[in-house]
């Protein structure tokens, strides 16, 4: 018997990239179910369109780049990008909006940089930001929570709407959609209302936006499951949420009528999704534990700054991309002390 020369180690643990990616998708399932319950079938249609588009674009570009198609598709990264983007987009988004977002995410933000592992930016967020700056109207038409909308659409009706823009007779987009809580807060603060006045409105729930706070709770649940399964570590989510809560508390204490409190910020918009599912993207984030704390803290502050003083109601996607740019520098300056090297 002659063996080829194989370098040690000869054994390997159970971890693999596909497993990591699949767990991220599993962790989002409760939140997706919550979305369906609260905002209707829109998210399911988004998922169908996004996943199909992602797989098609990824396969096409792998073919162009002469890379193995099936093996690479099975790494699950295109699937994760599609799912994250689909969850982040408004539930009643037209098909082309989703497709353009996915196209940019997969082709421009990932494959053109060399595929998984080489993308400096989180692909889903790159796609999201492209849509946000290009199609602001479509991106702010969020489905109204169940209690506030007049009439419900079935799965087929939502699919038809997505593909053709047609709605059943007697239904209008206005009746189905509403501004988000963050949006409302921003607009009305601009009209010199106080935070307590604004939060008396029907779009607000106990902590954050009505419905949103439940979805955010379910995302938190999925995130905790990822922590438990050791797909992610606590550093990034803790730093994002901690710094966001801290800075929100600070300004809330200074003037509670001008600045919403920390719970509102945590339970609204994309804070939870960003903290547990986006900022924890290893490829585009910081690697070392200390670096992850810096990365997350920077992101939390940026989210608050953009939400409070920026031009957009939510700032998660921008905050992620900005911190992605800083990740290599953060990693460089937060290298751990190697065994046998002097402290300090």
């Amino acid at each position: 018997m002659t063996n080829p020369v194989i370098s040690s180690p000869h054994v390997h643990g159970p971890a693999n990239v596909s497993g990591v990616m699949l767990r991220v998708v599993y962790a989002l399932l409760p939140a997706i179910a919550g979305c369906v319950w609260l905002f209707g079938w829109g998210v399911v249609v988004n998922l169908l369109v996004a996943i199909t588009a992602a797989l098609v674009f990824e396969a096409a570009f792998l073919a162009l780049r002469r890379r193995p198609i099936i093996i690479t598709l099975r790494d699950g990264s295109a699937l994760v990008t599609a799912v994250l983007l689909a969850v982040a987009l408004p539930p009643l988004a037209p098909w082309w909006l989703v497709t353009v977002g996915v196209l940019f995410a997969i082709v421009f933000a990932k494959q053109l940089y060399g595929g998984l592992g080489f993308n400096p930016f989180n692909p889903a967020m790159a796609g999201y930001v492209l849509l946000l700056v290009s199609f602001p109207q479509e991106m702010t038409n969020w489905a109204a929570p169940a209690a506030l909308r007049s009439g419900d659409l079935g799965l087929v009706q939502v699919l038809l709407h997505s593909l053709t823009g047609a709605l059943p007779t007697g239904t209008t987009m206005d009746a189905l959609s509403s501004a988000t809580a963050l949006d409302t807060l921003k607009v009305q603060l601009g009209m010199a209302h106080t935070v307590s006045e604004i939060r008396g409105g029907p779009i607000f729930g106990l902590f954050g936006g009505r419905g949103w706070e439940i979805v955010n709770g379910l995302i938190l649940l999925g995130g905790l499951w990822l922590l438990w399964r050791r797909v992610i570590t606590w550093h990034v989510p803790a730093a994002v949420l901690g710094s966001l809560a801290l800075i929100a508390t600070l300004f809330h204490l200074i003037n509670p009528e001008l600045y919403a409190g920390p719970l509102f910020h945590l339970a609204s918009g994309g804070a939870m999704l960003g903290a547990f599912f986006i900022a924890t993207d290893p490829v585009s984030g910081a690697t070392s534990p200390r670096g992850q704390l810096v990365f997350g803290a920077g992101m939390g502050v940026l989210i608050y700054v953009i939400r409070t003083w920026g031009g957009f109601p939510d700032g998660v996607a921008f905050a992620v991309l900005l911190m992605n740019m800083a990740a290599p520098a953060i990693d460089y300056y937060t290298q751990p002390r190697v065994y046998g090297h002097n402290r300090g």
Partner: peptide
């Protein structure tokens, strides 16, 4: 006894090695 040996992929910088 080798454990799981899937296809070799790109590094995703997960940092598990550093941990």
């Amino acid at each position: 006894e080798f454990g799981q040996h899937g296809p070799v992929r790109n590094c995703i910088r997960c940092g598990e090695c550093a941990r």
